[in-house]
Structures are given as C-alpha cells and as structure tokens.
C-alpha cells in the first residue's frame, strides 16, 4: 500500500490528509510535503491520520522533523487520530506530550 497525501487550506491552517501506510519507504513523501508547506510560509498544520493503516518510527521522525521546522516560525502541528493502534505508537515514544492529538478536525483546527 502506498501513501496518498491530500492538502487542503482550511481557516488559516493547512490540513494534510494521509491515506495509506507511512513507513521508511513512504515517509520521505510526507517529509517533502511538510517542507514545501514551510517553504510556502505555512506554519499552522493539521495532519489527519484517520486513514493511516500503518506507521513506524520513520513516520514519527518525519512528523517530529516537521514540528521542529514550524516551531522555529512560531507555528504548530496538531494531529487528528482516534485509532488505538496509531495512538499507541505515539504513547510508547512519549510523543503524546509533544503533539496535540484530537479525534475531530474542528478541535484540531482550533488548536493550531
């Protein structure tokens, strides 16, 4: 399974909707999308993980890298995720304390 990424501007934030698997092979695609957004001056980002079937440490690494980039411009990244398996990998790594995670888009948009 590949990774599809749709980008939508909503309110004054960018929403990235991921569909598929984020692994060592597909994570660079997500990385380049995040870098593109920062290069375009978009620092408020919401990443929707509801359709992500698999994510490993390379996916987390890219999200953390993206967070570092937007933070240097006073921006933020919030996540939408209600899938227990995906939430678990954020818990294991302690990243639940770093990323605001919501189960709906409305709250995620308000948070950035």
């Amino acid at each position: 399974m590949d990774l599809k990424i749709a980008v939508e501007e909503k309110d004054d934030a960018m929403v990235l909707r991921l569909d598929g698997e984020v692994d060592v092979y597909t994570a660079p695609k997500l990385k380049s999308r995040l870098i593109d957004l920062v290069d375009q001056g978009k620092f408020k980002i919401v990443v929707d993980l509801e359709k992500v079937a698999f994510m490993d440490s390379s996916g987390l690494g890219v999200l953390v890298g993206g967070l570092k980039r937007v933070r240097s411009h006073d921006g933020s990244i919030s996540l939408i995720c209600s899938q227990e398996n995906i939430l678990k990998i954020f818990r294991i790594t302690g990243l639940v304390k770093i990323f605001p995670i919501f189960d709906n888009e409305g709250q995620a948009l308000e948070s950035v």
């Binding site: 987390l60 570092k68 770093i98």
Partner: peptide, 16 residues
C-alpha cells in the same frame, strides 16, 4: 530531548 527522533526502533520492539 523528546524531539530527538532517531533511534526509536529498539524501544518500539521492546514495547510491542
């Protein structure tokens, strides 16, 4: 730093 994101592979294996 929790923003050091390399090297999470082994903690993952141990946790899962």
């Amino acid at each position: 730093s929790q923003l050091n994101y390399r090297g999470r592979g082994i903690p993952f294996m141990l946790a899962l």
